[in-house]
Simulated assay, not measured.
Amino acid sequence: MKTYEVTITETLQKTVEIEASCHAEAEDLVRTAWENGVHVLDADTFIGVDIKSVLKPRSRDHER
């Protein structure tokens, strides 16, 4: 049997409106609010999943 490492990446997305003087300030304000728990992403904001696998390389000990 071969060993695989499988990575599961879930994507959550939420759009919020904010007033700011420029896009950098808008992103900073929302980032700060998100870090403070104002914007919580959960199962309701789920938009997709990506599952990828790679064959785990054998260590040199197994090759002998």
Rank of each mutant, 00 (worst) to 15 (best):
V38W: 00
D42W: 03
I18G: 02
V40S: 04
V38R: 08
D44M: 06
H39M: 08
D42E: 14
V6Q: 06
I51K: 03
V38F: 03
D28I: 06
T32K: 03
V38L: 08
S53M: 13
R31V: 00
S53E: 09
V49T: 10
L41Y: 11
E35V: 08
T9Q: 02
G48V: 08
N36S: 11
L12Q: 07
T7A: 05
A24C: 09
M1C: 13
I8P: 02
D44V: 06
C22G: 10
A20C: 03
Y4V: 13
V30M: 02
A24L: 15
P57T: 07
R64Y: 09
R58A: 12
K2S: 15
N36A: 10
A26E: 00
L55E: 13
S59R: 07
W34F: 07
N36D: 12
I8N: 06
E63P: 00
A24M: 13
D44G: 09
D28L: 13
A26Y: 01
H39K: 01
G48F: 00
I18P: 00
K52W: 04
D28Y: 08
V6W: 03
V54N: 11
V54H: 03
P57G: 11
L55H: 12
H23T: 15
L55D: 13
R60H: 14
K14H: 06
D61F: 09
V6N: 02
I47S: 04
E35D: 15
R60P: 04
V6K: 04
G48M: 03
